[in-house]
């Protein structure tokens, strides 16, 4: 209803407390209340804590933050987190889109396949952790048995989760393995909304496969990919359980991303206030990212207008 949409653009100057407003707000209230109570309120508590000394309860200002920023580990962990996040996004993006495109054509069993590949996503992360640790188990895991004993391709077992060189890549791959199906499903849904006639028109005009993608597929996808990219970045950056379940942040600190670092500091070392400080810094990083993201979009929009 274009008329309805225009109401948004020309919102009334004064707040009109009428039945519609009340009902609308009332309907949204439970959701807001839930988020406020279970997310915002505790987080504010966490922020408060980050300024205190846990044992004495005294206000210590920015002490914990200073401690954090002078830890040379902190910066390497930040880099690790970024590598982890960007690696995930790259893998999930590439495979998510290509799988969705591959599925974008009817063939017998297509729908069944589309459903079946969601398996990695619906399995609890605990099971995923177990699954992959078994797959790469040094002594009896199928992959090593295959490569080492059956095919004789390697002489020592390949155990990426305990091998410092490979762990970060390994956990990235497992996490991407888990999320690609969901990304593919969402991208697939978007692809389904592209009218077939647009492809046909392009084909009549002589477009080859690449042109088809560039001129028809990509324009429709770009806004969805943008949203997915933003959400994906936020969610991935904050992931704790998948990494913890696979490697416990190790070996050593090879896969200690910032969330893992928070857990270690807060729980393992019992330095709760410091843990909270790290979390606050984490949040600030993401806020900066989100702001930059929207600002960039704004600039792009104005540029093309």
């Amino acid at each position: 209803m274009s008329v309805r949409d225009r109401v948004d653009a020309f919102a009334p100057a004064g707040v009109d407390i009428d039945e519609e407003t009340l009902t609308g707000v009332g309907l949204v209230l439970p959701a807001i209340a839930l988020i406020a109570a279970v997310l915002v309120y505790p987080f504010i508590g966490a922020i408060r804590l980050s300024f205190l000394n846990i044992d004495t309860g005294a206000f210590v200002g920015l002490d914990h933050y200073r401690w954090l920023l002078t830890q040379e580990n902190f910066w390497s962990f930040t880099v690790k987190t970024l590598v982890w996040t960007v690696g995930n996004l790259a893998l999930q993006g590439f495979f998510g889109v290509t799988v969705a495109m591959a599925l974008n054509r009817q063939f017998p069993g297509r729908d069944g396949l589309r459903t079946a590949i969601l398996l990695p996503f619906v399995i609890p992360t605990a099971v995923t952790g177990i699954l992959w640790r078994w797959m790469f188990n040094g002594s009896w895991g199928p992959i090593n048995v295959l490569l080492q004993q059956e095919l004789g391709l390697i002489s020592t077992p390949f155990t990426p989760f305990v091998n410092e060189q490979f762990t970060l890549a390994a956990v990235t791959f497992v996490n991407a393995w888990r999320w690609v199906p969901l990304v593919a499903l969402i991208v697939f849904a978007v692809l389904q909304t592209i009218p077939r006639e647009q492809y046909e028109a392009a084909r009549i005009e002589g477009a080859g496969l690449w042109s088809e993608f560039y001129h028809v597929t990509y324009p429709h996808l770009s806004s969805a990919l943008s949203v997915l990219g933003l959400l994906g970045f936020l969610i991935t950056f904050n992931i704790f359980d998948m990494i913890w379940l696979l490697t416990n942040g190790g070996p050593g600190t090879a896969t200690t991303t910032l969330p893992v670092f928070v857990y270690e500091v807060a729980f393992k070392r019992q330095a709760i206030a410091r843990g909270n400080a790290i979390s606050v810094v984490l949040l600030l990083m993401l806020i900066v990212f989100v702001v930059a993201f929207f600002w960039r979009n704004q600039v792009l929009e104005e540029g093309s207008a």
Partner: peptide, 8 residues
């Protein structure tokens, strides 16, 4: 009226 737009 919708803001500045007068529909009717």
């Amino acid at each position: 009226r919708f803001g500045d737009l007068v529909a009717v």
